[in-house]
Design a protein around this nucleic acid. Structure first.
Lengths: 350, 350
DNA sequence: AGCGGTTAAGTAAGCGGTTGAGCAACCAGT
DNA sequence: ACTGGTTGCTCAACCGCTTACTTAACCGCT
């Protein structure tokens, strides 16, 4: 029988004021009641310390003032930042963020999204692991979904805050090429290994265009694992130890990381291998996490404007929830290369 | 009303099997029904794709398989880590974490806690801003609360995962004293400025015992603000610029930060002031965030064992929820000083 | 006085489950 | 054959709120 603690209920307020529960319910939400009764009800409610039970309300109305926020992988420090920022943003608008972590697993991601839908979240913000999953379609039918980072190709979403990945990738690779790098390793987050993942395609295209040689290596966000992957990549670097990898693995002069978390792993691996970041090996990140500027050398990275993203995403979700139309439901974030000290001229370049 | 999408309901399963909704409800939860009917019901439910509505269930039973997780301040990177870890931990036990951020505001913290209670979370994990607030008492009566970091002095909690702050503080200050530091600035998170906050007391006591001079300065977790505070502290440092602060402000040779986030701010400020961390100014952190080992020099910090904390906290909460007794409901985490490169011998020390 | 139009409040049927009480059937035990 | 205890399921009352529909009152008009 529920919890023993007795909360005051709507009925009690009704009895105290001599009104029906319906009248009280309306009054408390300021719907077609006279000014006087509204006032009377408010007063009684305050005296009794009444607060509507959100669960009962949700059951009856189908709404919750709660927004689900689904992180693709909370090991990624930047996503932690993003979730925190979104949480603050929503809270400022009197909504609660129900934050969940898919841990980089596409199946879990959909399962959690369904759970959230069942919890009657009014809206769902998602930074998807697998944006092309078909499961999103059904979910987006039941609840307004705003996706962050990638568009959900199979679903009709309520909004999208996208990163112009092509522009970001081009910017970074152009930049590296300009510094004389011709062999670049790209560390992408592990995920569904669809060969046609847009980011991978962009990388290939840019590489072809610029005539540089890239090697794409999937890499976990967690620092320890990222360090491990980076170690393998770096020990093949020209300035590194005797080569242990396969002979056909060309050693990179620069590493382009699809998240700052991963870049931190590269820093760690570089330190182990006694390679100086910036001099022996250039590193570029992709998020601009606050910590990145504290590293030595500060990480050159791509800034997408975290706060703005959180704001826009929250705004789109809230608009959809409230049934408002928005002018543009697809926000494209432009990359800004934060040029700092971790990428310099390639060794041996004229 | 509610959403248009039709989920299969309990009644539909009942009709399909020719049983009462009660029987189906019991069957699905394996309560006193015959093996056969249970089987029959399960099969029907699976065919119809029935899944219990968590909201309705919550209203009727007073339970949700949801645990509230309330972060004192998600700007703190370590708390981000902690929340992520707890979320994973709970998810592994088929419970959902509802993560909220108090943003360092004690009032908001209690308001959010109440909200969570109203949302019928089965349990509440909290890393409190103000552990001595009286409001916790009422909350802890209504829902099992596990506190992390500090004990809730006014409430009967279901468990506590505490850091042995005294030991941690002693360890750090002993260590700094051993390196010859006699003027130390302590950067504590902003919070309710109760003069008798235990951590502050420990600091004073240790300082008295060791004969070192400490200055306690409150500091926000957010990197930008922390950098600002650190800047003011550091520009009074002996190796620093001409002193601009009040003349009676003794310049520290070491800074002890109550969180790694804050320490990052000090790194940033030190870089600006062209002070070498470790040589010109020693810095010690208090969390061991993964990134700390990637900094240059790697941050000497106090490791409390994040994963263990998350596990223990989740375990305590789940035990309380399930009404199980636990042997020890107060876990005390011992500090482990991760001695790395950011704290060295004080300048001018013999 | 009679009439459509508002506005204010009440009635009651849900929302989709859970759960105590009750009842029939069945099994021993005496 | 009668009692008493299980077992297995049904009934119906909730849980606490929302909301379509209805009724009542009151408005100014013709």
């Amino acid at each position: 029988m529920a919890r023993p603690n007795k909360r005051t209920t709507l009925r009690e307020v009704a009895e105290a004021t001599g009104l029906s529960t319906a009248a009280v319910s309306y009054a408390l939400r300021g719907k077609h009641v006279s000014k006087e009764t509204e006032e009377r009800v408010r007063k009684a409610a305050a005296e009794l310390g009444y607060e509507a039970d959100p669960i009962a309300r949700a059951l009856a109305s189908g709404r919750t003032s709660t927004v689900g926020v689904l992180a693709g992988d909370l090991q990624d420090l930047w996503q932690q930042q993003l979730m925190a920022a979104i949480g603050r943003e929503l809270l400022a608008g009197d909504r609660y963020a129900l934050i969940l972590d898919a841990g980089g697993d596409p199946e879990r991601e959909l399962a959690l999204a369904k759970q959230l839908r069942d919890q009657r979240v009014d809206g769902l913000l998602v930074s998807p692991v697998d944006p092309s999953a078909e499961g999103w379609a059904k979910i987006a039918e039941a609840v307004p979904v705003v996706s962050i980072g990638d568009a959900l190709s199979q679903a009709r979403t309520a909004g999208e805050v996208l990163f112009d990945n092509r522009a970001g990738i081009d910017a970074v690779l152009d930049y590296l090429r300009g510094l004389g790098h011709r062999r670049v390793t790209v560390l992408t987050p592990t995920g569904p290994s669809t060969p046609d993942r847009p980011a991978d395609v962009y990388v290939r295209q840019a590489a072809d265009r610029l005539g540089i040689e890239v090697q794409v290596v999937p890499c976990a966000q967690e620092l320890g694992e990222a360090t491990g992957v980076a170690r393998r990549v770096l020990t093949n670097s020209p300035a590194g130890r005797p080569r242990t990898g396969p002979a056909d693995l060309a050693p990179p002069t620069a590493v382009f990381c699809f998240s700052d978390s991963i870049a931190y792993g590269v820093y760690a691996a570089a330190a182990e291998a006694e390679l100086a970041v910036g001099r022996d090996i250039s590193v570029v990140g992709f998020d601009d996490h606050p910590v990145s500027r504290v590293l030595t050398p500060p990480l050159t990275t791509v800034d997408w404007g975290l706060t703005g993203i959180a704001k826009e995403a929250a705004r789109l979700a809230v608009a959809a929830i409230e049934g408002r139309r928005v002018r543009r439901k697809r926000i494209l974030c432009a990359p800004r290369l934060s040029e700092r000290g971790s990428a310099l001229r390639a060794p041996g370049d004229a």
